Structure formats: structure tokens, C-alpha cells
Computed example of a mutant assay.
Amino acid sequence: MMKQSIWISFDLGVRGDYEGLYQWLDSKGAIECGDNFAFFKYESSGDIIENLKNEIEESIEINKKTRIYIIYRNGVDAKMKGRFIFGTRKAAPWTGYAEHQEFIEEEEG
């Protein structure tokens, strides 16, 4: 068994099973890191992604609005990795706020 640092970001939607997730996070000794963001040490053998996914699935009600993203250090090359274990990426609320200049090259006709 190996203990690994995990950061978890979650959005369960308006009617999500926050109580179940909070109970699970509390059982892991998770610490709060901002709105819907937590850190904990996870003890696991085997595929950490599958183990986390299975354990969370057994603890909370998952629906189509459930989005859970984890950040962890890959055991193979020790690089930081991140991925959704439930749900997918959606458009960022800040999309369109920055000015992007389009450079058009003009030439004499």
C-alpha cells in the first residue's frame, strides 16, 4: 500500500449528493482548499484512478451533472497529472474576457 497526495475538485450540481461526498472526504481526513476543492492523502494499491472512482461511486450518488476532477502525482514518472473521474470539461466562465488580437498581414495588390 502506498499513500499519495490527492487534490480533488468537485461540482455535483444543485441537487448533488454533497452530504455523501462530505462524509467521504471527512473519512479521508481531507482539508478544505477553497470552494469545492480539497486535499487528502489516499492509501491505495493498484490503479489509483480506478480505486478512487470505485470508492467514490460506492459512497455518493453519481448523476449526469456530477463532475469530479483529481490532481495527483503519477507513480510511473512522478509528474503531476489531472483528470476527470466523473464528468467532463465545460466552457470556462472567463472565456471571451481577454482581448485577442488577430494579426492579418496585408500586402499590396
Score class of each variant (00 low, 15 high):
Val76Gly: 12
Ile31Ser: 09
Ala91His: 10
Tyr18Val: 02
Ser9His: 09
Ile62Glu: 04
Gly20Thr: 02
Lys53Pro: 03
Ile56Thr: 06
Ala38Gln: 06
Gly109Pro: 04
Glu32Val: 14
Glu105Arg: 14
Ala38Gly: 08
Met2His: 10
Asn63Ser: 13
Gly16Tyr: 02
Glu57Tyr: 09
Lys90Val: 15
Cys33Glu: 09
Phe103His: 11
Trp7Pro: 01
Gly16Cys: 03
Tyr69Thr: 05
Ile70Asn: 02
Gly109Lys: 14
Ile8Trp: 02
Glu61Phe: 06
Leu25Glu: 01
Asn74Glu: 13
Met1Val: 15
Lys53Ser: 05
Trp94Thr: 09
Lys79Glu: 11
Glu50Arg: 09
Arg83Thr: 15
Ser44Val: 10
Ile49Asp: 01
Gly34Leu: 07
Gly34Glu: 04
Leu12Trp: 00
Ser44Phe: 06
Trp94Leu: 08
Ser59Thr: 04
Ala92Gly: 08
Glu107Met: 14
Gln4Ile: 07
Phe103Ile: 11
Asp47Ile: 05
Tyr69Asn: 10
Tyr69Pro: 02
Phe103Trp: 07
Ile60Leu: 06
Ser9Asn: 13
Ser9Leu: 13
Asn63Lys: 13
Asn36His: 10
Lys3Gln: 14
Tyr97Thr: 14
Lys79Asp: 04
Thr88His: 08
Gly46Pro: 00
Thr88Met: 10
Tyr97His: 13
Leu21Gly: 00
Lys41Glu: 10
Ser45Pro: 10
Phe86Glu: 00
Ile6Phe: 04
Tyr18Thr: 03
Ile48Lys: 00
Ile49Arg: 05
Lys64Ala: 05
Gln4Ala: 13
Glu32Asn: 15
Ile104Lys: 09
Ile6Ala: 02
